[in-house]
Computed example of a mutant assay.
Amino acid sequence: MTLLAGPASPPVPAPLRRDVAGAPARAGDPTDASPRATPYLELAPAAAVRRFRRLAAALPGTAVHYAVKANPHPALLGALTTAGCRFDVAGPTEVRACLAVGADPADLVHSNPVARRDALAECAALGVGLFVVDSPEEAIKLAESAPGSRVLCRIVTSGSGSDWPLSRKYGCSAPQAIEVLALAAGLGLRPAGISFHVGSQQRDPQAWASPIAAAARVFGLLREHGIVLDTLDLGGGFPAHLEGGALPLAAYGAAIETALRRSFDRADLPRPHTLVEPGRSVAGDAGRVVASVVGVLRRGDTRWVYLDAGVFTGMVETLDEAIRYRISTSADGGPTGPCVLAGPTCDSADVLYEKQPVQLPLALAEGDRVVLRSAGAYTTCYSTVGFNGFAPLATVLVDG
């Protein structure tokens, strides 16, 4: 078993201790009597590799670039590299993490549309050749920082159908993308194509159809002006098995294939090279957060269950209750009732689920184990170091 401190940002975590055998532990269950201190993330790199292969099979001919930001653990990156996965990076730290496990810099795409000049220059110096922008200002910055790079322009989507929409911070309109890519060509960059993201934990496989059609219009109009694009970045959004379930990856592959055939695959507009940037769908189901009950209290008519893992110690995606994890406990099997689920810090925002209470066993008590499933993505990478005196979420490698 290897125990590592989960990083607040993507740097490679350093090992803290090993068990006597030095081998990964086997995944347990909520009744596990292990003396391991909670909370921690159990991470199974082999499970992530299986998910990568299923997604690749659902999207034949499409390059799969795992989004390192979801979980940058070196064992995970190494296993994915060995399996043939490529990577989506957001900055030099993630580039170095990929290179450290043997990834080819030619297999990296820098998808952060607004980045520091020195970060862009550093990524280019490390060998990254494909970057995403979404504005004239960022195209100019890229041309000055990483001259001659290939460039994608990100277009905005509604995010409708996703649990965590990404529709405001990044992306421009399709007409603006035409202007950005034409400017990029004039600046000496090499316009490569269009990127977009339909929102994280996207429940609707049809969500890709509209941005694919918009991208095809950009491809066609720029072709008329002598700029031939060859790459379409379909982004991430593919789901993990969170509360509410998810359609099989094959359903997403079939819907995307239909949309590509409708918008491309014709003499005047051949199908471009396609890639995807999954994070949650690869790493999510490969991990689970194991926590302990700190206390169970009655506040008026409401039962509150406090865990030693909370919003600021790994579960940041429960903010606004956007991401809802499947939960099991060591007290399962008896009657259940609603409760508010809260974290351990003194911050009043450290409440996981309150608007929609969770059903947990009425017998749940201090010291019981609680497992939040499909939590391998966006937990350790957002665990705040030393927040309110609480350590960042640790990672335990397991077979799985």
Rank of each mutant, 00 (worst) to 15 (best):
M1C: 05
T2R: 14
P11S: 06
R17M: 11
R18G: 05
D19T: 15
D19I: 08
P24Q: 06
A25E: 15
A27I: 12
G28N: 06
A33F: 02
S34K: 04
S34I: 07
S34W: 03
R36Y: 06
A37V: 14
A46Q: 10
A46D: 15
A47N: 03
V49Y: 08
R50M: 07
R51D: 13
F52V: 11
A56P: 02
H65N: 03
A70Q: 08
P72L: 04
P72N: 06
P74S: 09
A75N: 04
L76V: 12
L77T: 09
G78P: 07
G78C: 04
A83R: 09
A83K: 09
C85Y: 11
F87K: 08
G91A: 09
P92E: 09
E94V: 03
V95H: 11
L99G: 08
L108C: 04
V109I: 15
H110M: 15
P113F: 08
P113Q: 13
P113N: 10
V114R: 13
D118A: 10
A119H: 14
A121G: 12
A121E: 11
F131L: 13
V133C: 13
V133M: 05
D134E: 10
A143V: 08
S145Y: 04
S149I: 02
S149A: 15
I155H: 01
S160A: 14
D163W: 02
C172N: 00
A174E: 11
A177D: 01
E179T: 10
L181H: 00
L181W: 02
L189V: 10
P191T: 07
A192G: 06
A192N: 11
F196R: 04
G199C: 14
S200M: 06
Q201K: 10
D204P: 05
W208C: 04
A209Q: 15
S210T: 15
A215G: 14
F219Y: 12
L222I: 06
E224K: 13
E224T: 08
D230S: 15
T231I: 14
L234E: 03
G235S: 12
G235E: 01
G236V: 10
G237N: 04
E243S: 13
G245Q: 09
G245W: 04
G253L: 09
A255G: 12
T258K: 12
R261V: 15
A267F: 10
H273Y: 11
E277M: 14
P278A: 13
V282Y: 01
V289G: 07
V290C: 14
S292N: 08
G295Y: 00
V296I: 10
V296A: 03
L297R: 14
D301Q: 06
V305I: 13
Y306M: 07
V311I: 14
T313A: 01
T313D: 02
T318D: 01
T318G: 03
I323W: 07
Y325M: 00
Y325D: 08
S328P: 00
T336E: 12
T336H: 02
G337V: 00
C339I: 02
C339G: 03
A342N: 01
G343M: 08
S348N: 02
L352G: 03
Q356P: 00
L364H: 01
L372V: 08
L372A: 05
R373Y: 02
C381A: 14
T384H: 07
T384I: 14
G386F: 00
G386N: 12
L393Y: 09
V396L: 15
L397G: 05
